[in-house]
């Protein structure tokens, strides 16, 4: 039987019980476990840390890292940092968006891919850069990006 959200989060939450200052690392761990932050998880966190749900949402919504909707199986991040921008990152993003038929920030209908834009991976020397599930691909071209996607 599948574990409930509460059961899955218990180890993370118990270790941080009452530690309001650990909110951000807790959110990161919860998102790591669930892939995103469903509403139920926010109330669980609120309960264990001793904060209100709205305080938690206030913090979580401030940071770009946190997601409130279910994500795709694979996350594709296309860098739109300055170096990548100068090297044609916009076209890489357009090509990927077109290939997967999804807008930046969205998830494909079959929940296979989520597409995000990110402001720099520190691989600017190999711009433009695309990252799939943490794997960095440098010196991208529109055709190269399509080819990378074929492996998934």
């Amino acid at each position: 039987m599948e574990k409930s959200i509460r059961e899955r989060l218990l180890p993370i939450l118990e270790a941080n019980q009452g530690h309001k200052e650990s909110l951000i690392p807790v959110l990161q761990k919860v998102q790591g476990e669930l892939g995103y932050l469903p509403e139920e998880s926010l109330s669980e966190i609120a309960h264990f840390l001793g904060l209100s749900s709205s305080e938690i949402f206030g913090v979580a919504s401030f940071y770009a890292q946190f997601r409130f909707e279910r994500q795709g199986e694979h996350t594709i991040k296309v860098c739109q940092g300055t170096a990548c921008h100068v090297r044609g990152a916009k076209r890489i993003m357009e090509a990927v968006a077109q290939e997967l038929n999804v807008e930046p920030g969205g998830t494909t209908a079959d929940y296979k891919f989520s597409l995000e834009q990110v402001a720099c991976f520190g691989c600017c020397a190999l711009a433009p850069v695309l990252v799939i599930d943490g794997q960095v691909h440098g010196r991208m071209t529109t055709s190269g990006a399509r080819k990378v996607l074929e492996d998934y």
Binding site: L23, I24, Q28, G58, V59, F62, Y63, Q65
Partner: peptide
């Protein structure tokens, strides 16, 4: 070690400290 959460303004030192405290940066 504290991991950032994707907010450019948190590079600014006073915002960074707010973020370490677990608040909006």
């Amino acid at each position: 070690i504290k991991e950032g959460a994707g907010a450019f303004v948190c590079g600014e030192e006073t915002a960074l400290m707010m973020s370490i405290e677990g608040k909006r940066g």
